[in-house]
Write a protein that binds this DNA or RNA. Sequence first.
DNA 1: TCGGTTAGTGGACGTATGTTCACCCACGAG
DNA 2: CTCGTGGGTGAACATACGTCCACTAACCGA
Lengths: 224, 224
Amino acid sequence: MSVRSRQPSGPEIPESEEEVLPARGQRKQRTRDALIDAALQLMNEGRSFNSLGLREITRVAGVVPTSFYRHFRDTHELGLVLVEESALTLRRMLREARRAGAPVKDMIRRSVQVYAAFVLSNRLHFLFIAGERTGGSPVIRGAIRNEVDQFTAELTQDLRHLVIFPQLTPDSLQMICSLVVSTMLNAATDILDLPPGDVALPLEDNLVHQLRVIFLGAQLWRDE
Amino acid sequence: MSVRSRQPSGPEIPESEEEVLPARGQRKQRTRDALIDAALQLMNEGRSFNSLGLREITRVAGVVPTSFYRHFRDTHELGLVLVEESALTLRRMLREARRAGAPVKDMIRRSVQVYAAFVLSNRLHFLFIAGERTGGSPVIRGAIRNEVDQFTAELTQDLRHLVIFPQLTPDSLQMICSLVVSTMLNAATDILDLPPGDVALPLEDNLVHQLRVIFLGAQLWRDE
DNA sequence: TCGGTTAGTGGACGTATGTTCACCCACGAG
DNA sequence: CTCGTGGGTGAACATACGTCCACTAACCGA
């Protein structure tokens, strides 16, 4: 179940040099990953992050409670690492979207399809972000807000270079992008709540429509 | 700090009969309210609901842990009561908005001002709704979703009677209303995160702009 | 006035928690 | 080959938790 394959290590050099890292560091990294995975795993079973206990996490990770301290000062610190890692997933999504380029035709629908698939195949990270963005401990919520804001800013830049809304000031574009992002994160919660195996199509349709409304409004927008 | 004044009791019969309830029931209601207040109070200090412990709640409420069971089976059940109560606050807001009627001029801005004030003066309930709407225990999240959906439906009806968007099908209007509601709940989180005494005006402006974009888009919307 | 009902109490239970410490022992630099 | 470093262990601690029980005392119908 633990799908963590940190460092995809690029093109999979077969056997030549397993890793340049010392075996010591490898082992450490593995249990560290096990701890992070355990936390995500527990959240995947309906728990919220800051109700997780240290012992609970180590139990799922298959190590003794004391080992936890070799990696994190407390669960809180693990949470911040989780924010960082999830933010990386967000950025990876943006990067892939950039590489795919802007589909000229039916752009919103295609983007939503890609997004829904991405959310499902990165379920744990989106579960964390969407779940702790509101409600969790204040400092973790703040950290997530920072990352989401940064993500929004990058998206804004991208949209600016695509000159879809040439009449919008940077501020207005940002305001609209943040509306788009929060709408999409909101939809992520719904997508993740689906019983697995169920089809996300009605939700996708709804998201497509909502984004279309926003983009329609954006085209008409004039700063007073 | 405990602002609970349960049962506004409708038209406020002045002094004739303090309450028809037996003193026994009054007392019970008072500690029940104290428990609910305690939970909200703890959340107001940055905790998320399902990290609250039974003993913790009773401690703040000023009763012994065992007393809790006289009112709720467990903390979970208290949570569901909290959902109900918060939903009541939402409905109260809608009712007041209805009574105020639709301001013909600058309607969005006025509504946002009223909304922001309402969020601040019902801080605890909005904190609960906005915080547990995503992330909390699945069954509480489900209950909140139901209430928010119902709220959205009522808002949709209201907007329909105002015939602002006569060209929209009921489904489309609902889709747009749910976008409006989630945008406003999202803003509630931001408003509540402000350090107290700080002015919410920039946030209000942002929310006004986002809603304007949505309404602009809604006017252009045509079902294909 | 009496007596049943019941909200709230106080103590005790088993279990879980976070954190500490001394202890292993495999790794890897010298 | 040797030895220090450091990730993982196991036992122990004080404390907190949820839940149970017998008990008190106030209320209210009889």
